[in-house]
Design a protein around this nucleic acid. Structure first.
Length: 440
DNA sequence: GTTGCCGGGAA
DNA sequence: TTCCCGGCAAC
């Protein structure tokens, strides 16, 4: 459509329609011209259209054109599929497994309006036979991109995308020049007008919905969800893929903030994530699959081979069918403790524990009022570097240093090695901390 | 006074 | 996180 003339805003020219051809099958095409017997023949708008208006349809994939009356055309602005009789061999489009697929009609039951169709899915050898109702069938290929076709305006799935933050952010990130047309289907000649125009609005609408769900969900605004992949993230300066895959994004400039909806996003709760080094897995999100691997390349290869079939040029569709997840890594190292095992596994520490307890028990028995016994308690090894001390006292706790472990009578590094051999001391002794080598 | 070690600061 | 030290309390 390069007439050079600016078309009227709601020009019907360019609208994609389906029309019968000589072989009694419907073929998709585009309205190329409108001939109206009305007194304003130059008017291409639908205002002066009459029943005698003739539409010149140019069929896809060739230079074949034919004229039709509006009642003969199927498509937006014309009649629908109701009452249409489809013959075997008719090429149709339908949503299968959430994706738009091509299919051929095998049989059309005009009484029930049910069709038997043979789905032609790429990558599968054996065609699938399905029963579909007429209203589930389309004669025109949807211009939605593959991933939007996948969503198929299913808002529950949109919500899922929002839940799956990283996936969603990856989905939104489409460079501006790609927004005009999907990666799967390059901009066709009909993209700019009519039917296509509406789909563009649809794409933007879906993108906006995803954005809204991302920014409003109290769960979703984890900083890493925006880790630079999304081109709309205000703080996202990185354009490389590394940042969104790293899982260690820069924190937002404020420590705590409120979203527009007034939902508190307590960054303090989010902050500890920064310290955890999690490993990342890549999971195939194709329905019913769930394949998980540890590298991006592997999962893309899996999707390509198992689900999508041969790669087309410039086709990066596999990106849309996997998600990246963090899995909890083992607890951090215990470097500060001069010992590489948690206290409850440390025999010295256990001795200390028992000794303390015995000591406390003894003094309880002897004095009636015992001094506090410090029992180390580790709630969660990873959450606390130093064991917390639970004070167990007798009748009343004696004043003084609360939580201070009792002075042990054991020899310490200082006594054993002396000041001369300070380098032989355990690190804790060097640092004037509780000796870990000669504990109670 | 000596010793053990907690709490906290600096790098 | 590592290293160091002031200071407190037990001895």
């Amino acid at each position: 459509m390069s007439t050079g003339k600016r078309l009227a805003k709601r020009s019907i020219i360019g609208t994609r329609v389906a029309a019968l051809r000589e072989d009694e099958l419907y073929y998709s095409g585009m309205i190329q011209a409108v001939k109206t017997p009305a007194p304003f023949p130059e008017n291409n708008n639908s205002i002066n259209l009459t029943p005698n208006t003739r539409y010149t349809v140019r069929f896809d994939g060739g230079k074949v054109t034919r004229e039709y009356r509006d009642a003969e055309l199927i498509g937006p602005g014309f009649r629908g599929l109701a009452g249409v009789r489809l013959r075997p061999g008719q090429r149709v489009f339908l949503t299968y497994n959430g994706r738009e697929v091509r299919a051929d009609v095998l049989e059309h039951d005009h009484q029930t309006d049910e069709l038997r169709v043979q789905v032609l899915t790429p990558g599968t050898e054996v065609p699938i036979e399905l029963r579909k109702r007429l209203e589930e069938i389309r004669l025109l290929e949807s211009r939605k991109s593959a991933r939007l076709a996948d969503v198929d305006t299913d808002f529950a799935r949109l919500a899922d995308m929002a839940g799956d933050r990283r996936r969603a952010s990856a989905t939104i990130e489409v460079p501006a020049h790609h927004m005009q047309g999907s990666r799967k289907r390059g901009p066709s000649s009909s993209c700019e007008l009519g039917y296509g125009e509406r789909d563009d609005q649809m794409n933007e609408c879906n993108a906006a919905l995803v954005l809204m769900s991302l920014s409003c969900s109290p769960n979703s605004p984890r900083p890493s969800a925006w880790g630079g992949r999304s081109s709309v993230s205000p703080g996202a300066s990185s354009s490389s893929g590394s940042s969104w895959r790293s899982g260690t994004p820069s924190p937002p400039p404020v420590s705590s903030s409120f979203s527009d909806e007034g939902i508190a996003m307590d960054y303090e709760d989010l902050h500890p994530r920064k310290k955890r080094i999690n490993s990342v897995v890549f999971e195939c999100t194709w329905r019913g699959c769930g394949y998980i691997t540890n590298t991006c390349l592997k999962v893309e290869a899996h999707i390509r081979q198992t689900h999508l079939g041969p790669k087309k040029e410039g086709d990066h569709e596999e990106e849309f069918y996997y998600t990246e997840r963090e899995v909890a890594a083992p607890p951090p190292t215990l470097s500060h403790r001069d010992m590489c095992r948690p206290p409850h596994e440390d025999p010295d520490y256990q001795r200390q524990l028992v000794g303390s307890y015995r000591q406390g028990l003894l003094s309880t028995l002897q004095n009636g009022a015992a001094r506090p016994i410090s029992i180390p308690v580790t709630h969660s090894w990873s959450s606390s570097q130093s064991p917390k001390h639970l004070k167990i006292s007798g009748v009343s706790s004696s004043p003084g240093s609360p939580g201070r472990r009792p002075r042990s009578d054991n020899k310490k590094c200082r006594k054993v090695y002396g000041m001369d051999q300070r380098d032989l001391w355990c690190t804790q002794c060097k640092w004037k901390k509780a000796c870990t080598r000669f504990g109670d």
